[in-house]
Amino acid sequence: MCVGVPAKIIELEEERALVDVLGSKMYVGIIFVPNVMIGDFVLLHAGQAMSIIEESFAEESLKEWRDILNAAD
């Protein structure tokens, strides 16, 4: 439905940020992620950061999934 890619905030200005996606960079809008900070990963869609990625949640849900898999074995 919508291309969304994880992008790391490396510079922060008032209304935009420079992000890095595997070494390629781009200035993107941050109006939808008011609390974003340098070092955060965001989900990038069409030039705007749409969400801050909570890496710990990713880890958690991965762990949860591994547990399910192990249970299934």
Partner: peptide
Amino acid sequence: NDYTYVVKENGNTAAKAM
């Protein structure tokens, strides 16, 4: 919600307000 690291219960309120 199996995509918790980007999806919140109420979504993105700033975007919804816009």
